[in-house]
């Protein structure tokens, strides 16, 4: 094990996978000399050269489309987006092309493509640079979606993503890059997609959160403990495929569910989780599940406003109390 930041864990996995497989390469804006604005490719051009650590023009649709094409032609591209918000500039290439190519060609194509970058609140980047977009990419069949909440998950999930023969959207969180975590040294350390992690076991209420909301759910659980409520906290880790079984098993035990995410609440993935829990564990539920997410409002610049838009630890605590009738 080595203690590493989330950013270093990502960088190390990219380097190891590039050593292991010469078809792996990275393209993105400012990833050579600058090493990406969060340092996820820092100095890698020195080892791999600028053919494989490749600066692109500011042309997201072409970058991602070229990733799809290169993947069809036998490469394993990783496309770095400086902000995942820019997926929207290239939405056609992701949603109409990458996600559908294999299916519409009758299973003939293989698209081993990773699109990775960061999203979320925390740096005062305002409406077009602070969104949480994992939900919208879950909606379209054909793309896998990963959301690592710590450095070890980032390493294990990214390695799985790079070795996967499907397009994977890899959502990092800007507020997590400096956070440190023990990461296994094994160069084959992979976390399979579709395996949620129980971050804290508890018997009274199940709280599901991802990315930044894993630590916020754990903070809420610590508060709840003081009130005698024993919360179980679950991080799905990948959104496609989604490990519903672990959540349903947990709800069968606790009888209560709170789902929380930074993405907008309306049509957010928390609603899907609540719906499936109602389907799969209806008779175990002691209370209607509560789903928390950002208000139906763009992310404002001012920090107090930004905090007012996304769910707070206190709101998670209140929701858990409510489903526990406390």
């Amino acid at each position: 094990m080595s203690k590493k930041t989330y950013a270093t864990a990502i960088r190390d996995v990219i380097a190891e996978e590039m050593r292991r497989d010469e078809n792996v390469f990275v393209m993105g804006e400012d990833i050579e000399l600058l090493g990406g604005i969060f340092g996820c490719t820092r100095d890698l051009y020195k080892e791999f050269g600028t053919d494989r650590i490749r600066n692109t023009p500011i042309s997201e649709a072409a970058m991602i489309g070229a990733g799809v094409g290169a993947a069809c032609a036998g490469m394993r591209p990783i496309v770095e987006l400086m902000y995942m918000d820019f997926t929207l500039v290239a939405a056609d290439q992701i949603i109409n092309q990458a996600a559908k190519t294999r299916y519409i060609f009758g299973g003939k194509a293989k698209i081993p493509l990773v699109i990775r970058g960061q999203q979320g609140i925390g740096r005062g980047n305002a409406a077009t640079h602070s969104q949480s977009l994992e939900t919208i990419f879950m909606h379209f069949p054909g793309i896998k979606v990963a959301c690592p909440s710590n450095a070890a998950d980032a390493a294990g999930l990214l390695r799985t993503a790079i070795r996967d023969d499907n397009p994977v959207m890899f959502f990092e969180h800007k507020a997590l890059y400096a956070s440190k975590f023990e990461v296994p040294d094994d160069p084959d350390f992979c976390i399979p997609f579709g395996q949620a992690e129980i971050k804290r076991t508890g018997k009274d209420v199940t709280i599901v959160g991802s990315l930044l909301y894993v630590s916020r759910a754990l903070e809420a659980a610590a508060e709840l403990e003081k009130m005698g409520i024993d919360a179980e906290v679950i991080d799905p880790r990948t959104m496609v495929p989604f490990d519903m079984d672990t959540i349903i098993e947990s709800v069968k035990k606790t009888g209560k569910l709170v789902v929380v995410h930074e993405a907008h609440k309306v049509a957010g993935w928390g609603a899907e989780v609540a719906s499936q829990v109602v389907d799969g564990a209806f008779k175990y539920l002691d209370a209607a599940p509560i789903h928390l997410g950002a208000k139906a409002c763009p992310l404002p610049f001012n920090i107090e406003l930004e905090n007012a838009v996304v769910p707070s630890v206190q709101q998670i605590v209140e929701a858990a109390k409510k489903v526990c009738y406390r």
Binding site: G124, N125, A126, A127, T128, H129, P298, P300, F301, N302, L305
Partner: peptide, 8 residues
């Protein structure tokens, strides 16, 4: 009204 910051 503080919604935009520098960039908008």
């Amino acid at each position: 009204k503080g919604r935009s910051g520098s960039m908008h």
